[in-house]
Computed example of a mutant assay.
Amino acid sequence: MQVEGLSINLATIREQCGFAEAVDVCLKHGITAIAPWRDQVAAIGLGEAVRIVRANGLKLTGLCRGGFFPAADAAGREKALDDNRRAIDEAAALGADCLVLVVGGLPDGSRDIDRARRMVEEGIDAVLPHARATGVPLAIEPLHPMYAADRACVNTLGQALDICDAVGPGVGVAIDVYHVWWDPDLANQIARAGRMKAILAHHICDWLVPTRDMLTDRGMMGDGVIDLKGIRRHVEAAGFFGAQEVEIFSAENWWKRPAEEVIATCVERFRTCC
Rank of each mutant, 00 (worst) to 15 (best):
T134M: 15
M119P: 00
V177D: 14
P169M: 06
G123D: 10
V120M: 03
D97S: 15
D176T: 14
V120P: 03
V177K: 06
V127C: 01
N155L: 08
D125S: 12
G95V: 11
D125E: 07
G123R: 07
P145A: 10
L106A: 14
D97Q: 15
I175R: 02
P142W: 05
V154K: 03
R132H: 06
M146A: 10
P129H: 07
V180N: 11
A126N: 03
L157S: 11
A148R: 12
V103I: 10
G123K: 05
G135H: 03
R151V: 10
A93N: 08
E141G: 12
D97V: 12
I140V: 12
Y147G: 04
A139R: 00
C164V: 14
D97E: 15
L157Y: 11
A131G: 08
P169H: 08
A116D: 07
V171T: 08
D97T: 13
A133Q: 12
N155Y: 01
G105P: 01
G135Y: 04
V100T: 12
V167K: 03
Y147V: 02
D183Q: 04
L94G: 06
G135L: 05
L101D: 13
L138P: 13
D183S: 05
L128I: 05
G168L: 01
D162C: 10
H130I: 11
G109I: 13
A131Q: 07
Q159S: 02
A92E: 09
